[in-house]
Design a protein around this nucleic acid. Structure first.
Length: 618
RNA sequence: GGUUCCGUAGCUCAGUUGGAUAGAGCAACUGCCUUCUAAGCAGUAGGUCUUUGGUUCGAAUCCAAACGGAAUCACCA
């Protein structure tokens, strides 16, 4: 950034420090700031003033606004007079400014038309318009992380879409991104499904039952819970305390015994585990394919927990961990404002965090990335705080670049989703409902002549998943959100299909222009006045890279989704105000076609980042 | 109880390192398809930004307190 630290360049569109364009618009910004500074200096003798530019509010004429209130005292004059004097000075000295307007203490500058045309040309010719410079840095992103005892639900959809999208965004931001998935395939919850299957399964398989593997296993997880509850009720009716009944229920005791047998390598249990695990993972694969998410490497807890135990040994030797009389191993995190945390049980078996230490180590050995993002729900904030502190205390080389992307839960109107009780919105069901709705909507609108059957299937998928992904991603990841299954997800307004529609419409126009052999490519700066609507669109398109930067910094696909919507909305406005393909003035027509094409590209790129495809016809 | 997060239109959400009259979408109502795709556009209506105090030229935004909600504080994962 030029002008050192005397000058802060800020655009208030999103309250985030950013630049509009790489070229040429930032030249005018810097020039404007410099000019205002010299005005302050020569008129009011204010040296080295901090000059902040903001974007002019829509209701007023102009592009950049300078707020003079902060200088009232030093200048010894009323704000409007100060603004007037600075405006006069800038107008005289800076060619790119065509006029200015004073509203109270706000000084609004209007840019000369040729600057907008220049900006459009440079956008068209920018070979690196949609990605940032290579950062030469690896970053790991871990997301999805399912349990292998039940199918995926709506919460997992948010996780998967978020994780995949953030990976795309970081890649566009110049990082080398490695996507990992840590499958949670061991523990008591897995035994519950296994035990219920053993008792009631009667040899059922995905093939024999025509159920997706994960759904089949999930069925037995629910069956376990039902049987467990029934047993508890019987015990309580027999006079036992509820707390005791929880532990004493025979089926729970059996599940515990199974866990022990499994850890001791009982071949029968292992075999059952392998079979059922394979069913679940097979089912997940189909769900992932439908979601459109991918991973570079899949880790399994059953493979990483032993490495975790090794790290515990290391930590004991270095004195980071300590052993209590009962043989359990702990770390003291009181200095960090926390308390003592267990890292290994007294029986020597690993806990959740042991396994996470192992996974972190393994990932580093595999990829050597010092930065890591964990996409995990905010219910685990405390866990990750502890994990990151532990890694730091162990002086691991990968301990400083960790970030927990803590997203909010998806709640139903009835409250939290619970797999055990069956009060969940199933991921597969929801996706196919969305595709079905897309099919109905599209058929109603009747614009699908000339599509083949496979093209139609593809389109319905793109639209249904587009609506769903957009719905889940447009909200700030950190916030918990509400999903009401009674109300269907919209296809109109601030939605995925709205943006997709704008894209399809642009594609249609560009196709027609090509059919008519119109070459609208700009060869030089066009000489034409641009309407405010056109200027605003150019402005928006020019902020794309700044949006990537912002989305990277905040790990937020919502910023990209909102941006794509703004761009589409602005284009639709232009589309209704002006003729594009039918414009008689060839220069104006070419400008608008160029704008249309750039808009289409920008939408496609932005939607790619949030994992949504942009159909060319719909 | 401790810690963390949240409270903006009837509903779902933007906007928060302090700036002008707080924005979208849905739902409601009014217009616009013999011209480039009406899944669109233009408009009407809807707000004491939970409350109270403070900081200052200026607060939805910063600080403090209160009220309301959520998560977490496991030898579950």
């Amino acid at each position: 950034m030029h002008n050192e630290n005397k000058v802060k360049i800020k655009f208030m569109r999103n309250g985030y420090l950013c630049r509009l364009f790489d070229f040429p618009m930032n030249r005018i910004q810097d020039e404007l700031i410099a000019s205002i500074q010299s005005a302050l200096q020569s008129i009011f003798q204010i040296e080295n003033a901090e000059v902040v530019l903001q974007e002019t509010k829509k209701e007023f004429e102009g592009t950049f606004t300078f707020v003079v209130f902060p200088f009232t005292k030093q200048a010894g004059m009323a704000p409007p007079q100060i603004a007037q004097k600075i405006g006069d000075f800038v107008l005289e000295n800076l060619a790119g400014i065509s006029k200015f307007q004073v509203v109270q203490g706000f000084l609004n500058f209007t840019l000369a038309d040729e600057l907008w045309a220049e900006a459009l040309l440079s956008l068209q010719n920018d070979p690196q318009a949609y990605t940032l410079a290579n950062k030469n840095e690896k970053i790991l992103i871990e997301y999805s992380s399912p349990n292998t005892n039940k199918p995926l639900h709506l919460g997992h959809l948010r996780n998967n879409f978020l994780g995949f999208s953030v990976a795309q965004i970081l890649a566009a931001g110049g990082y080398e991104v490695i996507k990992t998935n840590l499958v949670n395939d061991r523990g008591i919850h897995i035994c519950k499904s296994m035990l219920a299957y053993q008792k009631m399964g009667q040899g059922e398989t995905p093939e024999s039952s025509d159920l997706k593997g994960d759904h089949l296993v999930g069925k037995y997880y629910v069956a376990f819970d039902k049987a467990y509850k029934a047993e508890m009720e019987t015990l309580i009716a027999g006079g036992m305390e509820a707390e005791q009944a929880k532990i004493q229920a025979p089926i729970m005791q059996e599940a515990q015994a199974m866990l022990v047998a499994w850890e001791q390598g009982d071949p029968k249990v292992i075999q059952l585990w392998e079979t059922m695990n394979a069913w679940v993972l097979g089912g997940f694969e189909k769900s992932y394919a439908q979601m459109g998410v991918r991973f570079d490497k899949i880790y399994r807890e059953s493979n990483t927990y032993l490495l975790g135990k090794k790290i515990v040994d290391e930590g004991l030797q270095s004195g980071t961990f300590f052993r209590k009389e009962d043989n359990s191993v702990w770390i003291n995190l009181e200095e960090e404002g926390l308390d003592e945390k267990l890292v290994l049980r007294k029986d020597g078996t690993s806990v959740y965090i042991t396994q996470d230490m192992g996974t972190a180590q393994l990932k580093f050995e595999d990829f050597g990335a010092k930065k890591s993002v964990y996409v995990v729900g905010n219910e685990q904030d405390y866990h990750f705080e502890v994990l990151f502190h532990i890694l730091k205390k162990l002086n691991k080389p990968y301990s400083l670049g960790n970030y927990h992307l803590s997203y909010g839960m998806v709640d139903l109107p009835s409250g939290k989703m619970k797999s055990r009780e069956g009060t969940v919105v199933d991921a597969d069901d929801l996706m196919s409902e969305m595709v079905q709705t897309a099919k109905e909507r599209t058929t109603e609108l009747g614009k699908i002549e000339g599509f083949s059957a496979s093209e139609l299937d593809n389109l319905f998928n793109q639209l249904g998943l587009g609506a769903l992904k957009y719905f889940l991603l447009k909200v700030d990841p950190k916030k918990r959100m509400l999903f009401n299954p009674e109300e269907s997800i919209d296809f109109q307004g601030n939605t995925g299909p709205f943006v997709q529609y704008t894209h399809a419409r642009i594609c249609s126009m560009i196709r027609k222009a090509k059919e008519q052999a119109i070459d609208f490519q700009l060869k030089s700066t066009p000489k034409a006045d641009l309407s405010p609507t056109e200027q605003e669109l150019i402005y928006l398109l020019g902020t794309y890279k700044a949006k990537i930067e912002e989305a990277c910094a905040q790990f937020s696909p919502a910023i990209i989704a909102q941006y794509a919507y703004d761009v589409a909305k602005q284009f639709n406005k232009l589309y209704n105000e002006h003729s594009i393909l039918n414009e008689e003035d060839a220069i104006k027509r070419n400008i608008r076609l160029t704008l249309a094409e750039l808009t289409g590209k920008t939408i496609r790129e932005a939607f790619e980042l949030i994992g949504i495809q942009s159909p060319e016809r719909m």
